[in-house]
Structure formats: structure tokens, C-alpha cells
């Protein structure tokens, strides 16, 4: 594997309960890169992340760099509210020293809320908790599955500025599922447009043309290119 490549995927196909979810997907991820996976609902974005984690069976090749640790932020955790649990409790489910829990809570800005019940957090706080949880064992790679709904604009902004900060501090490689085109412009190095097969791949500005988005979503998508 080339030196700075952390993940190589070749001809990946996933079939679940007889339905073809992903077909012949190939891409590479370099260390420190933010790769965004974009696509309509049902395109297989979440399935892709879960397959990379080793949760689903697949055909083709998924080669992670040896010894690489991966953190995972799931899209939603509906059952978490069934359990009375504080943020601290949630982190203690991981086998890590109390000192590390303190440190990570500091990093995500939730030290003061550590005794707050998970079910009572705002959606932004909850997202930050999930990100901190995923990073608690110091992984080199973060897989982030953005919730479809639920986070308000302000919460979303803080979530992404947090991700950006953590990425720089920890030299993280991030694989990101998002629907927010502005996030891609600001934050992402490489985009894969996915609709079961790879519709397009490349740098955000080269790839995200109205034509390719229309091809991806099957209808006109209005957006404005951010110029900073």
C-alpha cells in the first residue's frame, strides 16, 4: 500500500437480504483527508460505513492500513433513551481510565454536563457526546454518519467546527456522510457521490456541478457555491 494511503476499497459490492445495496465501488483515502459520501436516501451511504467497520458481509476488497483504529459515530441511537444514563456513564461503557474520560469531555466541551442524563441533552450536545465517545480510544480514523434530521442549524455549526478542530489536533482521517453541501465545501477534501454505484468522485469544486448533482439526485438541486 502506498505510504499515506490509510484505506483502499476495490470493487466493493454489498448484498443484504437479496438486495444489491452497493456495487463495484472503488476508492482510496489518504491519511488526514476528509472524504465525504453524498447521495440520496437509500443510496447505501450508511451501509458503506458499516461495511467498512466490518459489520456487513461484502465482496471485493477493503484494506485498512495495519493496526489502524477506527471510531464510529452512528446516525442515530434510538434505544439509548431507554436507559437512565449520564454522559459519564456512557463513556464508562468503554474500557478506558477515568482520566481519559475527563480529557475527552474537556475536548468536546461537556465537562460541566458530565452528570447530565443522555436523554435530556440537546441534539447538538448529543452529537458532540457521540463524537467524543468515538474518539475516546484515540482512533486515527473517524466514520461519521450525519443524522438526517434533528440538529438545529446552530447545533450543526458547532458540531462541524468541533470536528474540524479535532481533526487538526489529532490529524484525523474522516469519512463523512452528510447532506449539507456547504459542509462539503468548507470541510471536505474529496467527495464520492453514491447511488448504489459511484456516480462521481473528485474534489468538491470539480465534482459538485449542478449537472452531476442532478444525475445523483435525479432532479434539480439548487445550491450556491460558497466563495470565501
Amino acid at each position: 500500500m502506498k505510504e499515506n494511503i490509510i484505506l483502499k476499497v476495490k470493487n466493493l459490492s454489498v448484498e443484504l437480504q437479496g438486495e444489491k445495496i452497493l456495487q463495484n465501488l472503488s476508492f482510496e483515502v489518504r491519511e488526514g483527508e476528509v472524504l465525504t459520501i453524498l447521495g440520496p436516501n437509500g443510496a447505501g451511504k450508511t451501509v458503506l460505513l458499516k461495511t467498512l467497520l466490518g459489520i456487513f458481509p461484502y465482496k471485493g476488497e477493503i484494506i485498512w492500513r495495519k493496526g489502524v483504529k477506527i471510531g464510529y459515530v452512528p446516525q442515530r441511537l434510538p434505544f439509548i433513551k431507554n436507559v437512565p444514563m449520564t454522559i459519564e456513564d456512557f463513556f464508562r461503557l468503554k474500557d478506558i481510565p477515568e482520566k481519559d474520560i475527563r480529557n475527552i469531555l474537556k475536548e468536546i466541551g461537556l465537562v460541566e454536563s458530565s452528570k447530565k442524563e443522555i436523554g435530556k441533552l440537546s441534539s447538538g450536545q448529543f452529537q458532540r457526546t457521540l463524537i467524543g465517545w468515538a474518539l475516546a480510544k484515540n482512533p486515527q480514523v473517524l466514520l461519521f454518519d450525519e443524522p438526517v434530521t434533528g440538529i438545529d442549524i446552530k447545533g450543526e455549526r458547532t458540531v462541524y467546527s468541533l470536528l474540524d478542530k479535532l481533526r487538526k489536533e489529532r490529524n484525523l482521517t474522516i469519512l463523512l456522510v452528510t447532506h449539507d453541501l456547504s459542509v462539503i465545501y468548507k470541510f471536505s477534501d474529496f467527495v464520492i457521490c453514491l447511488n448504489k454505484v459511484s456516480v462521481c468522485q473528485g474534489k468538491p469544486k470539480e465534482i459538485l456541478t449542478p449537472q452531476s448533482l442532478q444525475k445523483l439526485y435525479g432532479q434539480e438541486v439548487k445550491f450556491y457555491q460558497h466563495i470565501h
Binding site: 458499516k50 467497520l53 459489520i55 452512528p74 441511537l77 439509548i80 461503557l93
Partner: peptide, 16 residues
């Protein structure tokens, strides 16, 4: 701890 995690999300547990 493991069962609580599995109860919350099997995927998350598997990722761990």
C-alpha cells in the same frame, strides 16, 4: 457494560 452497549446498538458494539 457490554450488554448495555449491545442493547443500545448492536452496530456500535460491533464497531467496538
Amino acid at each position: 457494560p457490554q450488554i448495555v452497549l449491545i442493547n443500545i446498538s448492536e452496530d456500535l458494539a460491533k464497531a467496538e
